[in-house]
Nucleic acid binder design. Structure first.
Length: 331
DNA sequence: AATAAATACCGTCAGGCCAG
DNA sequence: CTGGCCTGACGGTATTTATT
């Protein structure tokens, strides 16, 4: 069990919720004292119910150490104070809590600030690393206008210029990345099939039928269109992109180009598509955010370890100096 | 082995922040 | 001002650990 004050430099009231599996364990931190020149004292409520005073102490610059002048240490100066019920009651309501809570700098910012102070601390890259989701790969090839995720977890991105990108997320990143360019920029014939795509990858064969602006992406498990499935074999996943029919099976993602919306149904479909896209992006963002948070916590924990060692050394040094300055006098 | 508790992880929502 | 990004909060499931 661990708990931190995440933003060591923050003077705002924060509340940490280390909930897990429906059980909530909270560390409530009330606002620090208002005294400017003196160290600010903060009330911290531990999961056990104990309330402690936490005093923030500005570290003095130590050129020979790994500390930076901005870094604040957290010092527990009193333990087991009686609970302030009024204070804890005030934060139970979700609405009130949201009002109390305020934004803190992102983990990337915080960690980068730390890393600029401490050479040993690695920075969080501004760009996503290669093992992160689809967007980096998509952006590397073409700016996508539509991104779809199939029920099998594969991503399909269709760019403005007609490039189609298929990616299969694997355990350590996106695998089986493939791309093709549409050649049917002219008037599409009535019907579904315009472009067929079949690619042999490590995962198997993939097929695509691209009918102009409005497309349907689906996999083999939900529905098959035998007339278009020239190369569909076995259990290999198959996607079909074609003009939308009437009813869509579960798992089908509808898409329409923004310029061709007419009926309320199309508007609803567009809204659904936008929502799906937003959810997908947010999903990826949440993953990335959690990864950064983990990295940040690791960084803090390593700093704690370093500071503990340093503290120990300083105490030993102090004891040695004491012995030197005041040698025992035998009586 | 069965069960409970703890922990880890995920997707979604809400809302603040910020560049354009 | 707005759209996109980021992240806390929440509720859910899966996995691990402790207890009986």
């Amino acid at each position: 069990m661990w708990w931190h004050r995440h933003n060591l430099c923050s003077s705002r009231p924060v509340e940490r919720d280390y909930s897990s599996g429906g059980l909530q364990k909270k560390v409530s931190v009330a606002g620090p004292g208002t005294g400017r020149g003196s160290p600010s004292v903060t009330l911290v409520q531990l999961p056990s119910g104990q309330t402690v005073h936490v005093q923030e102490v500005i570290q003095t610059p130590q050129p020979s150490s790994t500390l930076s002048p901005q870094i604040q240490a957290v010092q527990v100066v009193a333990v087991a104070e009686a609970d302030d019920s009024a204070e804890s009651e005030g934060v139970t309501d979700s609405q009130k809590r949201r009002e109390i809570l305020s934004r803190r700098p992102s983990y990337r910012k915080i960690l980068n600030e730390l890393s600029s102070d401490v050479p040993g601390v690695p920075k969080i890259e501004e760009e996503k690393s290669e093992e992160e989701g689809v967007p980096p790969h998509v952006a590397a090839m073409a700016v996508p206008t539509s991104i779809y995720q199939t029920s099998t977890g594969q991503y399909i991105a269709i760019a403005q210029g007609g490039a189609i990108q298929i990616s299969t997320p694997g355990s350590d990143g996106v695998q089986g990345l493939q791309a093709l360019t549409m050649t049917n920029s002219g008037a599409p014939p009535p019907g579904a099939t315009i472009v067929q795509y079949a690619a042999q990858s490590a995962d198997g064969t993939q097929q695509f039928f691209v009918p102009g602006s409005q497309v349907v992406v689906q996999d083999e498990e939900t529905e098959l269109a035998p007339s278009h499935m020239a190369a569909a074999t076995g259990d290999m996943p198959t996607y079909q992109i074609r003009a939308p029919a009437t009813a869509l099976p579960q798992g089908v993602v509808m898409a329409a180009s923004p310029g061709s919306l007419h009926s309320p149904q199309q508007l609803a479909e567009e809204a659904t598509r936008k929502r799906e896209l937003r959810l997908m992006k947010n999903r990826e963002a949440a993953k990335e955010c959690r990864r950064r948070k983990k990295e940040y916590v690791k960084c803090l924990e390593s700093r704690v370890a370093v500071l503990e060692v340093q503290n120990k050394k300083l105490i030993e040094e102090l004891e040695t100096l004491k012995d030197i300055c005041s040698p025992k006098t035998d009586v």
